[in-house]
Design a protein around this nucleic acid. Structure first.
Lengths: 141, 141
DNA sequence: TTTGAAGTCTGTAGCGATTACAGAGTCAAG
DNA sequence: CTTGACTCTGTAATCGCTACAGACTTCAAA
């Protein structure tokens, strides 16, 4: 540590540990434009400040809610550039909510069928297999 | 069409159309060992029979239930090689069912939060944005 | 002082499950 | 004979990371 004004910055792994994500992910987010490029020490090491940390947390929380990186980019743009972000943000969230619900519906269909075949397979000692027959023959939906 | 014994076979796109999947997917499944390599005409064109069709349907139904390709491979192996497939098949289905339920739980968490923020965003004309504030600050879970 | 561990840097390749494309060959109808 | 629709192969793109390789830096202990 030798660069005066950057003395207090966080290193990449340090930042990642604090926030609980992979340190490669931090670099990746910078590469794809989700995090601003941080200043570097004379040796070329990145030094992060509280603002980077805040932004990274934002991205990770958005990911936890299932937003894709492009949607996260849009949200960050709204934060940075719009003084009335809520309208667009709300639309984005509503659209995403619809997708999430569609996925849930898909998975519930799968769950229903799977639960049914597992029950019908019972202890697995039957000569024919309900799962395999379902996949070959039947109404899988 | 000139090869005697293969006269009645289906071409790739034909097979794909009948079953309702992309014709590239058929080739891909062959490459990764989910479909047996079909015989070829003298010009090197693939000719599929009813058995290929049956197998492809099996794979696609399994995919609809969310099984990954490796699980599908296992199921096909059970079909081909085991005379008591049901026990293993049942275990596979049960494990997959658990995964599906875990995904549903994940998505429901997302849904809950998203529904909440969309409601709180109301008509999107508020000065501060509940979604953005949630992502920056709050308990996103 | 040396040396070793643990960090950092870059660029690149891998995952899974497709999908798409380029460039060449084949085939049947008009 | 040409046109259009098919086929073939191999390879690259997608998404969101994750994991290397090979070189450099930093820091603390021996």
């Amino acid at each position: 540590m030798s660069d005066g004004s950057l003395r207090k910055g966080l290193q990449r792994a340090e930042l990642a540990r604090r926030i609980g994500c992979n340190h490669e992910t931090v670099r990746y987010y910078e590469k794809v434009g989700l995090l601003p490029a941080p200043p570097r020490t004379t040796a070329g090491y990145r030094r992060y400040d509280a603002n980077h940390e805040r932004r990274l947390r934002f991205v990770l929380r958005a990911r936890e809610l299932g937003f894709c990186l492009d949607e996260v980019r849009t949200l960050l743009r709204l934060v940075d550039e719009s003084d009335q972000p809520c309208s667009e943000a709300r639309d984005l969230a509503a659209a995403h909510l619809a997708e999430v619900r569609a996925k849930i519906a898909d998975l519930k269909r799968m769950e229903r069928v799977l639960k049914d075949v597992v029950v019908r397979c019972a202890d697995g000692t039957r000569p024919e297999c309900p799962l395999i027959e379902t996949l070959f023959g039947g109404k899988a939906a």
